[in-house]
Design a binder for these strands. Structure first.
Lengths: 146, 146
DNA sequence: CTTGACCCTAAAGTTTACTATAGGCTTTAA
DNA sequence: TTAAAGCCTATAGTAAACTTTAGGGTCAAG
């Protein structure tokens, strides 16, 4: 049972038929073989490819960027290892930068929730809000601007 | 010189006038005071607020989510510490999940670029491409979070 | 006092990433 | 054999997040 119809692939990957056809139309998902009656017949590689697309998307890569990641594959005949590696490393740097920025956000937010009483009282003097003022650089005072 | 016109704020924050007015219209950026002639006059707090919006956006938060983060601020008079803390913790979980998924992507990509020769030869048999073709998806799924 | 760089609003247009609709074949189970 | 469920293409519609356009005021320099 190496063959999946579109609905089965959609369920496996938690998307839907329309999105899969859309990805195919955008060149992100390679066109699978067709059954005699024209049905798309997918395989394990398709599952992996869709998983990759969805994961990259959750990471904040646009479909265009996902396409670039995938193009490492498609254009291999015309590319050198050096070019491929350099593109991969470029994406690695983007990922690294995202991680670091998320770290900064996390530790600021964490510090702040740790300090919050969390009680069922007015937040007017909540430590989270005080901390956001200073640590996160968010304007918090509801004063009219001078 | 605590006052900035829209163009100056745009340059400082690396956006543009239209985007700033758009954020204001969406309630993300508080409406600043106006000059006698109707010009928007911003201050340092505006700079911080725009920076926060852009940072959160780079992290993959939608403008709606950014609005929720900012609402920790605006509605403090109406909220309890419990509510504020719970919203902050919810956002922390989202951030944590993003970090973990980025980790998985990074180590898969890293592993693969490490194995690539990077030489100036055809990529037809490049280890990166082989990895993408066959088992990158599986590796990513099964990898423990560092 | 006019010219050019800025600013204003309102509204329409664009891009990205889907999502839905219409109309029509295919497969499977009763 | 027929009815539901699933698939097909093509095209239109939607939501988010801007971006552009149109038509007009403002202000400092020359």
């Amino acid at each position: 049972m190496t063959s999946l119809r579109i609905g089965e692939l959609a369920e496996l990957t938690q998307t839907n038929n329309e999105t899969l056809r859309f990805y195919e139309s955008k060149g992100l998902l390679s066109a699978p073989r067709r059954s005699a009656s024209g049905y798309r017949m997918y395989n394990q590689a398709s599952v992996d490819q869709v998983s990759f697309i969805l994961r990259a998307k959750r990471m904040g890569f646009s479909l265009k960027e996902v396409g670039e990641l995938l193009s490492l594959n498609v254009e291999k005949a015309d590319s050198t290892c050096r070019e491929v590696k350099s593109l991969a490393e470029e994406k690695l740097e983007v990922i690294q930068a995202k991680i670091e920025e998320l770290y900064r956000m996390r530790s600021a937010l964490q510090q702040v929730t740790d300090a919050c009483c969390g009680a069922d009282v007015s937040a007017a003097s909540c430590s989270i809000l005080h901390a956001l003022e200073s640590d996160l650089g968010v304007e918090l005072k509801n004063e009219p601007i001078p």
